[in-house]
Computed example of a mutant assay.
Amino acid sequence: MFLILLTYQKPLSEVDALLEAHRAFLKAQYAAGHFLLSGPKMPRTGGVILAQAESAEALQAILALDPFYQSGVAAYEVVQFNAVASHPDLAQWLNA
């Protein structure tokens, strides 16, 4: 399991210009089963994605498709963790 923290590196006007393409990227990753949750940070300084992938390298290849990544409007911090406890409704995502 991976927690991805995006931090905007450019003004919001540049981020917003790519927002539609970024959302299409997110939608494709949800359809592929890679992304579980996502949304903007509050205040709006970046975003957060909860993802699953076979490996850190596989996740990096996925993130390289993001228009935010390709244009350099966001920096990415990837935290890999082993999900061993959850709310019962989320138990299917546990790595235990």
Rank of each mutant, 00 (worst) to 15 (best):
F2Q: 04
L3D: 09
L5F: 12
L5R: 15
L6N: 04
L6S: 03
L6P: 07
K10E: 01
P11K: 01
V15Q: 01
V15Y: 07
D16C: 11
D16S: 12
L18K: 06
E20V: 15
E20T: 15
E20G: 15
H22T: 09
H22S: 02
H22G: 04
A24L: 14
A24I: 13
A24F: 11
F25L: 07
F25W: 08
L26H: 04
L26A: 06
L26S: 08
K27W: 02
A28V: 11
A31I: 03
A31N: 00
A32Q: 01
H34S: 06
H34Y: 04
F35S: 04
L36W: 05
G39I: 09
G39Y: 10
P40C: 03
P40Q: 13
M42I: 13
T45C: 08
G46Y: 02
G47S: 06
V48C: 11
L50S: 00
Q52H: 14
Q52R: 15
A53I: 05
A53K: 02
A56K: 15
A58E: 11
Q60V: 10
Q60K: 12
A61L: 12
P67H: 02
Y69Q: 11
Q70I: 10
S71F: 13
G72R: 01
G72T: 01
E77Q: 12
V79G: 10
F81M: 10
F81R: 10
N82R: 15
N82Q: 14
N82I: 12
V84P: 04
A85N: 04
H87W: 00
P88S: 03
L90A: 07
Q92N: 14
Q92M: 14
L94Y: 07
